[in-house]
Design a protein around this nucleic acid. Structure first.
Lengths: 156, 156
DNA sequence: TGCGTTTTGGTTGTGCACAATCTAAACGGT
DNA sequence: ACCGTTTAGATTGTGCACAACCAAAACGCA
């Protein structure tokens, strides 16, 4: 890290503000999704899983976890709830009995049509211009990447 | 909403990407905090509460909730854990017995010194330049504000 | 072939986040 | 003074998120 990149003391407050803003914005945005998704009987994380399945048709739990950056402790019960709701099937892969393949039921596939209006509804509710969204997405990805690779500094 | 602000179909994917990026970035960043805060025996939401208390000294549960945008269902058990850890006291306000005032114990006050290094450690771990952070903070606040004011469009 | 290692999911326990509901205190108008 | 309404906080129940641990299947190599 070069001298110029190292934050000076004046930045520390800014740093805290960004962390809290991120935390608050994430909760506020999922709160916008909540009533919309409720009509489909989905939570936001469940909706993310369905998005992956609608796009790929069939996915192992491992691949789902990599896409959404969630571990089995989160996904296992979530997938069991989706299965109980009749939206997905789970079956061991006969080629590798360790792997569980998640696939859409007819009901889960039909739900896709009801979900097509959701991104537009959210976009209208938040109303942030597309030009800013693209920059925001890129900055957030940068932060996620940096945070994921963060070395867990043991400052002794 | 004017014609120019309405997203065209091409933006819908961008919209989803931003929502997921926000969700992922928030979790990734709290994951960076986790090992650092663990040394203080705090979780990230508990740290946010302590930040408010370190700044204001004494706060009602209601004021805490407004600052952090959290309701009593989240704060009550969290504050009980902070109390069990000996970091805060809770007492009914004698002037208004409905209100509970949260204050720092000597131990909670001392913890502030151990926490001074945290923002710097996080800033170094993520390494996003200050110039971008300021813009990011402002954009996130805009989204939070828009999302909080969102009218829960009943699209019938 | 046998056995240690890795991979894949599941389980358990803790701690948010939030909706819904409840109690008690304060308030407000008559 | 009375009673309906509002407000502050706690409680209950559901669903993530994640750490820690576990079991079974697959792999690899001596």
């Amino acid at each position: 890290m070069t001298r110029a990149d190292r934050p000076d003391p004046g930045d520390l407050d800014l740093q805290k503000q960004v962390c809290f803003a991120l935390y608050a914005a994430s909760r506020a945005l999922t709160a916008v999704y909540r009533p919309v998704l409720e009509r489909l009987g989905l939570t936001y994380p469940q909706y993310l899983v369905m998005l992956v399945l609608w796009e790929r048709g069939q996915t192992s739990v491992k691949a789902l976890g990599e896409s959404l950056q969630l571990d089995s402790g989160t996904l296992s019960p979530l997938l069991k709830r989706l299965e109980a709701a009749g939206l997905v099937d789970r079956a061991r892969d006969p080629r590798d009995e360790r792997s569980v393949v998640v696939s859409l039921t007819p009901s889960g596939d039909r739900l896709r049509e009801q979900a097509t209006g959701i991104p537009r509804a959210i976009a209208e509710a938040t109303g942030v211009p597309a030009s800013e969204l693209a920059y925001l997405r890129d900055t957030l990805r940068k932060i996620t990447e940096a945070a994921t690779a963060a070395p867990d500094k043991e400052t002794t």
